[in-house]
């Protein structure tokens, strides 16, 4: 059973390698202008060059930093606000509809407002990323808190648990699957907004790097940057999956 799984995985890697080879062939025969499409060899060379000179690493670090700070701020604020709103039925009736109304708003539309307030600065980028990333987390937390099994609140009452203990021992763990799902969604939002802010504000990061490369028609550098962005998205989402897997081990047996 396990070996067939590995064989499938290998076959799947072979198919992916085939696509890369096809890409190389297209580039070699110049079926697409090399200005737009560098071969994987040139993209790889650019990646290696960028890393050995430290340029690309610095850009990568910049993007990851923007993303991480914004996302962490959004997580803390989102969970706190979501907990306050979600644990009070009164708050829910008054506040939740407004939040639901704002939910489908394309968050990037807040960027010009942030620029007007904060200028083309790091602070603007962090504000935009945090603002965009807070919605999925906050709404998921509200939902999670509202959906706590009422029986558990009765258990807490008959144990005469304090309000704080109820939040930390009953409501938060019960809402944790929702919260983590929200945090996962936000991770993607944070990465996209980090790139957009870097493009707009010229902040040090991969977004700025790919834009500059495109302007100078350095397609190999451009592809190297895009590949790195893909890797960043992949690695963060895998890390998030691992965290979810660990934190929600108790759910595995339920499904």
């Amino acid at each position: 059973m396990k070996t067939t799984g590995i064989l499938w995985r290998l076959a799947s890697f072979a198919v992916a390698a085939g696509f890369v080879a096809l890409w190389q062939l297209i580039a070699n025969f110049k079926l697409v202008s090399p200005v737009f499409l560098p071969g994987p060899d040139r993209a790889w060379a650019s990646l290696v060059r960028g890393f050995s000179s430290g340029d690309l690493l610095a850009k990568l670090a910049g993007t990851v930093e923007h993303m991480a700070y914004g996302w962490l701020a959004a997580s803390i604020a989102g969970i706190a606000l979501g907990a306050v709103i979600g644990s009070s039925p009164r708050m829910r009736t008054y506040v939740a509809p407004s939040l639901e109304f704002l939910r489908p708003l394309p968050v990037s539309a807040i960027i010009p407002v942030a620029i007007a307030m904060l200028g083309l600065t790091q602070a603007m980028a962090l504000f935009v990323i945090a603002f965009g990333a807070i919605w999925p987390i906050m709404l998921a937390t509200i939902h999670g808190f509202a959906a706590v099994e009422p029986r558990l609140y009765e258990v807490a009452r008959s144990l005469q648990m304090s309000k704080l203990a109820v939040i930390f021992k009953i409501a938060l763990p019960s809402a944790s699957p929702d919260i983590l799902a929200g945090m996962r969604l936000s991770l993607t939002v944070a990465l996209i907004l980090a790139v957009v802010c870097e493009i707009l504000a010229g902040l040090d990061g991969l977004g700025h790097w790919v834009l500059l490369s495109a302007r100078a028609f350095r397609s190999a550098d451009l592809f190297a940057g895009v590949i790195l962005l893909g890797v960043t998205g992949y690695v963060t989402s895998v890390a998030m999956s691992l965290a979810e897997h660990r934190l929600l081990a108790w759910q595995a047996s339920q499904r």
Partner: peptide
């Protein structure tokens, strides 16, 4: 996992 917006410069050129 490639963020869609990262394709922007490629699409642009």
């Amino acid at each position: 996992p490639i963020p869609s917006i990262a394709l922007l410069p490629i699409a642009l050129i």
